[in-house]
């Protein structure tokens, strides 16, 4: 699919916005031996609900079992598996790159080409940000690496179904025990 990781799947999990929900979800992954590749959590348009976007690594365990076990959590209201071809994905990255003043222009140029932003400039370093598809971020990160990355943080991806076609969901809308 994307990111050079064919075994990754995106789960969009709608949960009740209550204390401990993230602990329940992450605890379930730990307890059942599933790997989380990335995780992003925030409230939705309905303040009573949060959406957790989980990129799961299913080389170790079938996706179906993950989804079913997640569904058993009382706080989990809905789970959609998003097909990358039928969804829009975005991720944000912030990176500080060590670069002497005379070469700074190259990094600025690179950031402009990728339509990123300059967030801060120091004498020996520059902090840039980029949002976009995870693949685009991978490419940008690769190019920055040549200059020397001091610190880098990515948010993990968030995703929603594309508007023209409905997100393919492997899971029925009904809830399980």
């Amino acid at each position: 699919m994307s990111n050079g990781h064919p075994a990754h799947h995106i789960l969009s999990v709608l949960v009740e916005n209550r204390p401990g929900v993230l602990a329940r979800v992450s605890g379930l992954f730990a307890r059942r031996g599933y790997n989380i590749f990335s995780l992003a959590v925030a409230p939705t348009e309905d303040p009573a609900m949060s959406r957790i976007t989980i990129v799961v690594d299913v080389e170790s365990s079938p996706l179906e079992q993950i989804v079913k076990q997640l569904f058993k959590l009382v706080d989990v209201v809905k789970i959609s598996e998003l097909d990358p071809r039928r969804s829009v994905e975005r991720e944000l990255m912030i990176a500080t790159v060590r670069v002497p003043a005379e070469e700074r222009g190259q990094v600025v140029e690179l950031t402009n080409i990728f339509e990123g932003k300059i967030l801060a400039v120091g004498t020996e370093a520059i902090t840039v940000s980029l949002d976009g598809s995870p693949e685009k971020l991978d490419d940008f990160e690769e190019l920055l690496r040549g200059y020397g990355i001091v610190e880098l943080q990515r948010t993990g991806r968030v995703a929603l179904p594309k508007l023209d076609k409905e997100a393919r969901s492997r899971v029925a809308k009904g809830k399980a025990s």
Partner: peptide
């Protein structure tokens, strides 16, 4: 109060 709990 339990929108996520609907056993089949």
């Amino acid at each position: 109060s339990l929108p996520g709990y609907r056993p089949t």
